[in-house]
């Protein structure tokens, strides 16, 4: 459903508020079919939000966005899809680990996508965000 919407209705994302509405429907569907997901999202949100210099905001295409000193390090959609920004070199290394995928839309960028499916995935999601956070921190220091 998510992939179908992004592929065929993705052009509608420019309509203000529509991606937020779509993300709300994702959260609602998770509440019905996989309530555990909402707890995983909370766990990641509160952990990453506690890192020094990290702020949270609404992502323009729906979900919560993690920023370090105003620069985005990643965002988490309501269906448990985590998108994190890396350099292309780092992305290649992570892809070799076979746990992340190319970004679900921008395949040739430094972005990677990771789907939360289990409790263990929360730790890996935090690892990815920490990595991006540290890279961002080092590059800005």
């Amino acid at each position: 459903m998510f992939a179908f919407t992004v592929k065929w209705l993705g052009f509608l994302k420019v309509i203000p508020g529509l991606p937020l509405f779509f993300d709300a429907l994702l959260k609602f569907s998770m509440f019905i079919i996989k309530p555990k997901m909402l707890e995983w999202l909370d766990e990641i949100e509160s952990e990453v939000g506690s890192w020094e210099g990290v702020t949270l905001s609404l992502h323009k295409y729906g979900g919560v966005q993690f920023n370090y000193k105003g620069k985005e390090i990643g965002h988490l959609h309501g269906n448990g899809l985590l998108d994190v920004l890396f350099s292309r070199k780092m992305k290649a290394e992570l892809l070799a680990e076979k746990r992340v995928q190319n970004h679900h839309v921008f395949k040739n960028s430094g972005w990677v996508s990771f789907y939360l499916k289990s409790d263990e995935d929360v730790q890996y999601a935090l690892y990815l965000l920490k990595l991006s956070f540290l890279l961002q921190k080092n590059s800005l220091s």
Binding site: G17, L20, F21, F22, D23, A24, L25, K27, F28, S57, L58
Partner: peptide, 14 residues
């Protein structure tokens, strides 16, 4: 209704 109430709640929260 579900979509816009949830959206409004999260936007309001932010």
């Amino acid at each position: 209704i579900f979509g816009f109430v949830i959206t409004g709640t999260f936007v309001g929260r932010a």
